[in-house]
């Protein structure tokens, strides 16, 4: 069993590394997913094996703790899963955003930093002055009630994406649209 686990972990890590090195963000995300699965398998293996491994719930006084599984690795795995889930969701959102920004999900096709850093500096300066004016103007009127309730990061992501004239009409963009999402939006489509 140990040998099998070692093999599975090794294959998962190898496959994850391969995917991470692909020039495609979605594959990178998948690679990270495989990585975290491999790490979790490693944690399971680190708990050791017992021929009879009962789940570690002590429900009565005479529970046989010696044949129970080590509860710590599953514990750690649960935490690690939650964290990798959160980071994965964030990363996927960012992939989508980068795709909307630049119309590509190939990291090698992204523009060089120094090229648009100047633009962004200028834009930031502009935004800052605008914002200062806006603050002055709206300081009295602005209140939380005018705000629609939920406007968190992904919201902003899409809002800003609208500013970009090319990205939304990128040909082939529809292929990237998740199917579930079309279902959600069936009404507006």
């Amino acid at each position: 069993m140990e040998l099998l686990m070692a093999l599975v972990i090794g294959v998962l890590f190898a496959a994850g590394t391969y995917l991470l090195l692909r020039p495609n963000f979605i594959r990178v995300v998948m690679g990270l997913g495989l990585y975290s699965n491999a790490a979790n398998m490693l944690l399971i293996a680190s708990g050791g094996y017992k021929a009879i491994g009962l789940s570690p719930f002590v429900t009565s006084e005479d529970a046989q703790t010696s044949v129970m599984m080590d509860p710590l690795p599953p514990d750690i795995i649960l935490t690690a899963i939650v964290i990798s889930f959160a980071v994965g969701a964030l990363f996927l959102t960012l992939c989508y955003r980068v795709y909307l920004d630049h119309g590509t999900d190939n990291p090698e096709e992204l523009p060089n930093d120094e090229m648009d850093e100047r633009d962004s500096d200028a834009a930031q300066a502009r935004a800052q002055t605008q914002d200062l004016e806006a603050t002055k103007a709206t300081e009295e009127t602005a209140s939380d009630e005018n705000e629609p309730a939920a406007r968190s990061l992904p919201d902003v992501v899409q809002e800003l994406a609208k500013d970009d004239p090319q990205a939304p009409h990128e040909p082939g963009g529809d292929e990237l649209r998740p199917r579930g999402a079309t279902g959600l939006n069936g009404a507006t489509a």
């Binding site: 909307l100 992904p154 998740p178």
Partner: peptide, 15 residues
């Protein structure tokens, strides 16, 4: 958290 993810990623208003 999950509902935020579902709702925000499901909106697709950018298109």
């Amino acid at each position: 958290t999950l509902m935020t993810v579902f709702v925000e990623l499901g909106k697709e208003e950018g298109r």
